[in-house]
Design a binder for these strands. Structure first.
Length: 246
DNA sequence: AAAGGAGTCAACCGCGGTGGT
DNA sequence: CACCACCGCGGTTGACTCCTT
């Protein structure tokens, strides 16, 4: 690729030096982000606009988060990639402090691991979303029937009617009934479903001992971390993510 | 300890979109 | 409308580091 060389138009290529970084930071301080092609002219930096923008966006920006991707971020990346595919910049916008390049690299690294691993995360995610849809449909039917029941009760003013109508319980799947009845405090699909798999172990953990962090996402420990350990942030994040698609 | 392979990350390239002239 | 410059995005590459044998 020719690292550290001067190309024909006079632009430097390859790794950035600390001096170059300082020049670029100073430029952004004075002029703000953008107009990257002016950087060379105004600072004497021998880098083209593209290179400057990339360096700033991926490395020098002060709001960048350093360090490893957290399990929460990991779960968001997984879900968003399931929905949006390789739209790294869109995914990055949902993860403050992370860059598209970082997420892309992370995904590639972990998808390589997954390629060698027989368990299929994408399939699991699809199943998960499908179950969510089924749950929502069934829950909607249930709610409608409950509203109808309440309406009847109100009309007749007879509370005893409740018992008589018990046999008319909505015909939801056994799985969903369990989910709702066993975890009455759950108010969302995510909570109910993940609590349910804690018991039912729907996605049986892969027997391989060498599971990666990526696969670990679907293991119960992470389910607990993400949804049941009073992680309001996590729940809110998921609600925000899914709300536009519901 | 050394060599080779695997993993990680920064940076480049090409392409398409957008806005100005 | 056409052209051009700029910008942003996704794919890819290569250097460096870590791990395994």
């Amino acid at each position: 690729m020719g690292w550290g060389i001067i190309e024909e138009k006079g632009w430097r290529k390859g790794p950035w030096t600390s001096e170059e970084d300082m020049l670029l930071i100073e430029y952004v301080k004075q002029h703000g982000e953008g107009r990257w092609n002016s950087v060379a002219r105004l600072t004497g930096l021998q880098r083209n606009g593209k290179s400057c923008r990339l360096r700033w966006v991926n490395y020098l920006r002060p709001d960048l988060k350093r360090g490893q991707i957290t399990p929460q971020e990991e779960s968001i990346i997984l879900e968003l990639h399931t929905m949006w595919g390789n739209r790294w910049s869109a995914i990055a916008r949902s993860l403050p402090g992370r860059t598209d390049n970082e997420i892309k690299n992370y995904w590639r690294t972990h998808s390589k691991k997954k390629a060698r691993n027989p368990s299929n995360t994408a399939e699991k995610a699809k199943k998960w979303l499908l179950k969510k849809q089924q749950f929502q449909q069934q829950h909607q039917v249930q709610q409608q029937q409950q509203e109808q029941l309440q309406f009847n009760l109100d009309m007749k003013g007879n509370m005893n009617l409740l018992d008589e109508n018990d046999h008319m319980a909505p015909s939801i799947s056994q799985e969903t009934q369990e989910m709702v009845s066993m975890y009455p405090n759950t108010t969302t699909f995510e909570e109910g479903y993940f609590y349910s798999i804690l018991n039912a172990n729907t996605f049986a953990p892969n027997s391989s001992n060498d599971e990666t962090m990526w696969d670990g996402l679907w293991n119960l420990d992470d389910v607990l971390n993400n949804f049941s350990a009073a992680s309001a942030t996590s729940k809110t994040t998921f609600h925000n993510l899914f709300a536009p698609y519901c």
